[in-house]
Amino acid sequence: MSAMVARAPLHLFLAGNPFRGALTDGLFFRDKMRAIHRVAPDLTGSQILEIGGGRSGLTKLLYPDAEVVNLDADPGVADAACNLQAGQRLVTGSATALPFEDESFACVTMFDILEHVEDDALAASEAMRVVRRDGVIIVTTPSRERWRYPHYRFMRPLCPPEERLLREWGHVRRGYRQEELDALFGRAAEATGSFVNSGLALSHDIAFSKLPRPLRFAAHVLAAPVSLAGWLANRPGSPGAEIAATWRKPGSPD
């Protein structure tokens, strides 16, 4: 019988926020983590594949008792602390040609990955191939309808153009509608959520602005009431600039 693997308690998961400045530049990432936690189920099985995990170790933070394989295209992330810890190993490879047998994992995570992959349909198909029956795929990605940078027009003089930022981040598309994601994975999502609402979008604007770090910190302090209101207002089902969703592979052939 497969072992049950539970999510970390939310407060412990959030405490591991790998983004620098967890309550300033990293506040949007904290909101992303909360959205992931909301849509992520406890698992039957301890083997998890994280696609494009890089240096964050986010999946291992979410499922600390799991055995995590971090597949990343960059071999340079091998020295990251998360890839040297017990219970996680790095494999260099591509999201569109996963070097694993069919139905090898109880869960596959793809956090902000699909928007970077030219052949996203093949990446989704590969994720579905290697996940076990009744296993899950957990995805985050920008919302094509709601994400923009900067979110607030008054921030434009302080921010790089959106096109430059997306190019630097390696995007091949801005993001997705929920129905486009459902089409990629061949079924409706089992659970959906969102993050970075209009209140937290100001913090996101500041985090990636052209301001020097000391001025960014001061701007975050000034924006704190708006950011706090955004954090408190983000309930399950509320709209946001980014999407978190989970799909479950059927337990028997369709």
Rank of each mutant, 00 (worst) to 15 (best):
L228E: 07
G76T: 11
I206W: 00
S194T: 14
K249Q: 09
L222H: 03
K32E: 10
Q47M: 04
A188D: 12
L43T: 06
K32H: 07
T192E: 01
W231V: 10
R213G: 07
G175H: 06
G16I: 00
A218F: 13
G251K: 06
E180M: 10
V139A: 01
M110E: 04
C82I: 02
G52C: 08
A78S: 15
P225R: 05
E180I: 06
K60M: 08
R177E: 05
A73P: 03
L98C: 12
R153I: 00
D112Y: 07
Q88S: 06
G57Q: 06
R248Q: 12
T92N: 07
P41V: 00
S227E: 11
D205C: 02
A189Y: 01
M1W: 14
E179I: 10
A224L: 14
R164I: 10
F185K: 04
H220K: 14
L14A: 12
P64G: 06
A80N: 11
I138W: 02
D25T: 13
V131D: 02
G57S: 06
R148E: 04
F29S: 00
E67T: 11
L49N: 00
A218P: 13
T140M: 00
D72H: 07
A183I: 06
P250N: 15
A189D: 01
A22I: 06
K60Y: 01
G170I: 13
R148Y: 05
E118R: 14
E162K: 10
R20L: 12
I51W: 02
V68M: 09
G21K: 08
E190M: 13
M1Q: 11
L184N: 04
P253Q: 09
V69F: 03
G251E: 12
G240Y: 02
R173K: 15
G93T: 13
H151M: 01
L166F: 14
R129G: 07
H37C: 03
A191W: 04
F195E: 05
L23T: 00
G175Y: 08
Q85K: 09
R38A: 10
N83P: 02
P236T: 13
A78G: 13
L165W: 09
L158Q: 08
W169I: 04
R153K: 03
L71G: 03
P250M: 05
E190P: 03
V68P: 01
A127L: 08
G193D: 15
P150I: 08
T44K: 14
A188H: 11
A97E: 15
R213P: 02
P99V: 13
G57C: 06
L61T: 00
L184E: 07
A22H: 10
Y63L: 07
F105I: 11
P142R: 11
D120K: 05
M4D: 08
F195H: 13
A78T: 11
V136R: 00
T109C: 13
M110C: 12
F100R: 10
A22L: 05
Y176G: 02
R30D: 04
V131N: 02
F100I: 13
R34W: 04
T141C: 10
F154H: 09
S209Q: 08
E190N: 06
G45H: 11
V91K: 13
H220N: 08
V130T: 08
L71M: 10
L122P: 01
D31R: 05
E115W: 02
A229P: 00
V136P: 01
G193L: 00
H204L: 07
T92E: 14
S238H: 15
P18V: 00
G53D: 00
G52F: 11
T109Q: 03
